[in-house]
Design a protein around this nucleic acid. Structure first.
Length: 677
DNA sequence: GTTTTAATAAACAGAA
DNA sequence: ATTCTGTTTATTAAAA
């Protein structure tokens, strides 16, 4: 199966060719043309959810399956391939195949098989959460390794001392005696450890592969994975351990020769080899449990934080560090549960690492892919808030096929929906449309400032007519200015700067701007020393659009509450994004467009309402207006509904190639079939 | 079907 | 004379 792992994709092409098509679809297809719906439309979102929902179960299930499969394979290999141990008898029954053999040859049956299967899925948020929670076990693993290392060092140090002493001008006999004593000491220790392990094993509890004294660092993580994890999965998931207790093959604890023979030669192993190869007791090594790491890190323990034991799934409250240690020793001693948890954690960590690697790879591939495509019709800026994009998509599909030549990029659609006026996209080469008179009345459900801010890059690069009236645009231009006043030319410049659409047909839209400035009473011409500037009479502006205002008190209430809960809403929004793993591509200059948009939208509406009741001075401090003064009549219906919040949030252009326009330059019409209506 | 609103076109005037 | 600015009127499309 070829599942596209592009983050937002839920499609699953069934062949490579399909995959390539699909991949191309991600970059080169103007969403307005071919995509029947925006990427983050609700439908897609639902699909994504439904895809992800059962994944947690799938994860465990598949892991279990793979574990069992691997177990079988491994047993077979152990029997067939001679276990890579020269001494191992091929005919040795599986019952006696030591676990450690498999440990020593993890490469025979790599855990990659399991990982591959597991990682064909994208990490779900839930999974991630679980994994992240258990990330701490990595520390535990490291501690274990440290412990082994430490122990080995001590061992070697002792050996060195012994040997060094042996070189002293003393009797050889003494040296031999010392060495013998030391070896016996070692043996004793090993025997004790093995006894312990054996006891554990008898209970069917042995899971951890002890590090080898000779080479403790090497196998701890690797060696455990192939077989023990299989067991682990069984233990953890199937909750049935009778198999092991009844002496089933893979759980037997014959940790003898192969263990030593496969380990790299070291002084210890060389010295102990005679014993090891014969008595078969040396290779077992039991960690000293609790003495592990907090001796080295007296007061900082990875498993202890904020007064809580951070052992996975524990969270026991420990007053101080001492009590924590006590708790750790008592509750998390070396038993079946702890070892199982430990191994689970190790697997989790490994999975995380592999997942990370894979995701990195995916990221790289995505970036490479998009970069390659950037020379072609570029990955379209994906506007936000395509709530009701039907009209837009329709018009785009009608009009945009030939619309590419003049646009440096191929933007698709504005972030906020065009609620009126189906044909929004107008490009130079759109012979079909021409200057059709359309009513580009304001989007009554989306404040202009937020839309513009949100879709700034889009409008800059796409010759898409902003879905606002000239009056609204002019007002916006003026209000954006620091002095809240602009000359006519400055207004022109704002238009051309902000909208690619207004870089053409200058005579037309400039005339319209002048027409609007003169016509509407909301624009006030103020004589200045240098000339005349235009300002906005906000009261008049609000008067202009009374028809959209519904006096529905519930709406106002809703709006107010939305405003009041702006922050939680944003939080929820962020959480939602994180939960859905929605990548948020945004330009650096825009910050977080969604949240900013939300806030500004609310602010704007409140502001507009306020301005009606008060005087027109509230421009300068939008958002500070007390909410009590909201006048119902002039509060238009503000859909701060969940749609906008949870809706398509992401994807503004990642690169803004909009030229730096000379503000004094006129963008005269290009005589490209702009009429013939 | 009517009304309202906005876009477009254009005529015109005054100032620079 | 030309361009820019500003006003006004007319027409039309679209939405209410």
């Amino acid at each position: 199966m070829f599942q596209c792992v592009f983050s937002s994709s839920v499609l699953q092409p069934h062949s490579t060719s399909c995959l390539f098509k699909h991949l191309f679809h991600h970059s080169a297809t103007p969403a307005s043309q071919k995509q029947p719906e925006p990427i983050y439309s609700k439908k897609t979102e639902i699909q994504r959810q439904t895809v992800r929902a059962p994944f947690a179960k799938l994860f465990i299930f598949s892991a279990l399956q793979v574990a069992r499969q691997l177990l079988l394979q491994q047993q077979q290999q152990q029997q067939v391939s001679g276990l890579k141990s020269p001494k191992r008898n091929d005919k040795q029954p599986a019952l006696q195949v030591p676990v450690s053999v498999a440990m020593m040859t993890p490469q025979v049956i790599t855990p990659q098989q399991m990982q591959q299967i597991l990682q064909q899925q994208v990490l779900s948020p839930q999974q991630l959460q679980v994994l992240l929670q258990q990330q701490q076990a990595l520390m535990l693993q490291q501690q274990l390794q440290e412990f082994y290392k430490k122990q080995q060092e001590q061992l070697q140090l002792q050996l060195l001392q012994q040997q060094h002493a042996g070189k002293q001008p003393k009797e050889q006999q003494q040296v031999a005696t010392q060495q013998l004593a030391f070896q016996q000491q070692l043996l004793q220790m090993q025997q004790l450890q093995q006894q312990h392990l054996l006891s554990l094993q008898r209970q069917g509890l042995l899971t951890i592969q002890p590090g080898q004294p000779a080479l403790p660092l090497q196998p701890l993580a690797q060696g455990m994975i192939p077989t023990e994890l299989q067991q682990l999965w069984k233990e953890v998931t199937s909750a049935h351990t009778a198999e092991e207790t009844t002496g089933n093959n893979h759980s037997s604890l014959d940790l003898t020769t192969t263990c030593v023979s496969s380990s790299a030669p070291s002084k210890t192993s060389l010295i102990m080899n005679p014993h090891a190869s014969t008595n078969g007791q040396l290779s077992v090594h039991t960690p000293k449990r609790e003495s592990l790491s907090h001796e080295e890190h007296p007061h900082s323990h990875p498993l202890y934080g904020h007064g809580v034991c951070k052992w996975p799934g524990c969270e026991a409250v420990c007053e101080d560090f001492q009590s924590f240690l006590k708790h750790l020793n008592s509750e998390h001693a070396l038993d079946d549960r702890s070892t199982a948890q430990c191994r689970v954690q190790m697997q989790v960590v490994q999975q995380l690492e592999l997942q990370l690697a894979k995701d990195k790879e995916r990221l790289q591939a995505m970036m490479t892919h998009l970069h390659v495509k950037s020379t072609e019709p570029k990955a379209a800026p994906q506007p936000l808030n395509l709530v009701s994009s039907v009209t837009l998509s329709k018009s785009a599909s009608e009009a945009s096929p030939q619309s590419l030549p003049h646009t440096p990029t191929t933007p698709t659609a504005p972030l906020t929906p065009v609620t009126q006026g189906p044909s929004v996209i107008t490009t130079t080469s759109m012979h079909t449309v021409g200057p059709i008179r359309r009513r580009y009345s304001d989007k009554y459900n989306v404040p202009i400032s937020s839309d513009i801010a949100q879709n700034q890059e889009f409008y800059k690069n796409a010759e898409v007519r902003p879905p606002f009236t000239y009056a609204s645009l002019i007002r916006q231009a003026i209000l954006e200015s620091p002095e809240k006043q602009l000359t006519l030319n400055e207004i022109y410049n704002w238009f051309t700067r902000m909208f690619a659409y207004f870089r053409r047909n200058a005579a037309t839209w400039k005339n319209a701007v002048r027409h609007n400035l003169s016509l509407h009473k909301c624009f006030v011409r103020v004589e200045n020393v240098k000339g005349a500037v235009w300002t906005v009479d906000e009261v008049e502006f609000q008067k202009r659009r009374p028809q959209k205002i519904s006096g529905n008190p519930s709406l106002i209430k809703n709006m107010q509450s939305s405003h009041a809960y702006c922050t939680p809403l944003n939080a929820a929004l962020q959480a939602s994004m994180a939960e859905n793993s929605i990548p948020l591509y945004t330009t650096a200059s825009m910050g977080n467009p969604t949240l900013g948009n939300l806030a500004s939208a609310i602010r704007e509406e409140l502001n507009g309402a306020m301005e009606h009741t008060n005087s027109n001075e509230s421009d300068s401090s939008p958002g500070r207006s007390p909410m009590q003064a909201v006048h119902p009549v002039h509060v238009k219906e503000e859909p701060l509904d969940p749609e906008e919040a949870e809706g398509p949030l992401s994807l503004v252009t990642t690169a803004n190639h909009s030229p730096d326009f000379d503000h004094d330059r006129d963008y005269e019409d290009e005589p490209v079939n702009e009429d013939m209506e």
